[in-house]
């Protein structure tokens, strides 16, 4: 009897998580698919997807989603790696930096977007400071539709500020489990800091980099609140369009089509990362 209870224990412990995942993720995914492919007569249709593709904002949304991805992900990985390597050095007071770096993690993305809005807006902090320093004599319109590169830039900055810390935490955790002997061996055998990073640290960090890239890319696809707060629909993105079709156009079917598209991209990119960054067991150090 006892063994039966014991063998059931793991499933019992997993059950609550499983329940939440099914209710809040699996069921909505299923519903989204249903909505996306179901016509008004209840049969299968691609009409929603045609509507989505022919919408004037669609190509822009696609373009900006990928542009954000291309700018934000590498920038964040590099910044996060630098931050993680810095903290890994364990200099005096390094834990203070860790806390400072982690502050954005505690802030919801919409709040972060609004905080950056108050910086970049016409009468925001940045313009006030620049004005009081005498650098500009009238406010610079960072967030105007006439100045798309500036709007885009503010979104990249705000998103990087908001979500670099999570990448850093993943990379730092990865660094901490690498035995320091490897770094010391690299030092003794003549590696400069740069060579050590390129030839020893990065390869050994590959599993963590893979995780960080996947998580960061998925988040980048879902970028929404920060864009909404800073740019509204001046810079359209896929998730933003899904929201727009649902909330403003009251068309959940086209909204679902957008959601399905985002999911397909996400899955595709995740598989790509796994392929590109694959390590053999031998390389990863497993017997």
């Amino acid at each position: 009897m006892r063994s039966k209870v014991e063998s059931a224990l793991p499933y019992g412990l997993l059950a609550p998580t499983l329940l939440v995942v099914v209710l809040l993720i699996v069921v909505p995914i299923f519903q989204a698919f249903l909505l996306a492919f179901q016509g008004s007569d209840g049969g299968f249709t691609l009409a929603q997807f045609q509507k989505m593709v022919h919408d004037t904002a669609f190509l822009d949304a696609l373009k900006f989603t990928f542009l954000l991805l291309i700018f934000i992900v590498p920038l964040q990985i590099i910044l996060a790696l630098a931050m993680a390597l810095l903290i890994h050095k364990r200099f005096r007071g390094h834990s203070i930096f860790l806390y400072i770096y982690a502050i954005p993690l505690a802030i919801s993305d919409l709040a972060a977007g609004i905080a950056w809005l108050s910086i970049f807006t016409e009468r925001g902090y940045l313009n006030s400071i620049l004005h009081s320093l005498g650098i500009i004599d009238k406010p610079f319109l960072f967030l105007s539709y006439q100045n798309l590169p500036a709007v885009f830039g503010t979104i990249v900055i705000a998103e990087s500020w908001r979500a670099t810390a999570i990448v850093m935490v993943i990379l730092l955790a990865g660094l901490e489990v690498i035995p320091r002997d490897y770094f010391e061996a690299a030092d003794v055998f003549g590696a400069t800091a740069l060579k050590r990073t390129l030839f020893v640290v990065l390869p050994l960090l590959r599993p963590s980099l893979q995780n960080a890239l996947i998580i960061r890319t998925i988040f980048a696809f879902q970028t929404f609140s920060v864009v909404l707060a800073l740019a509204g629909r001046v810079i359209p993105v896929l998730t933003g369009e899904a929201y727009y079709w649902y909330a403003a156009n009251r068309n959940p079917n086209v909204a679902a089509a957008y959601a399905v598209l985002v999911m397909v991209f996400t899955i595709f990119i995740t598989i790509m990362y796994f392929r590109l960054l694959k390590t053999t067991d031998a390389e990863a150090g497993y017997d």
Binding site: D181, A185, D187, V188, F189, A191, P203, E283, A284
Partner: peptide
């Protein structure tokens, strides 16, 4: 360390897991 021109064998070996035996020996 790199300017001291010495070689070292570590207790844990510290043989790089992501490099082949050849590349490990060739590292320095």
């Amino acid at each position: 360390p790199r300017d001291r021109k010495l070689a070292m064998v570590f207790q844990s070996y510290a043989v790089f897991p992501h490099l082949t035996v050849f590349d490990n020996i060739a590292f320095g």
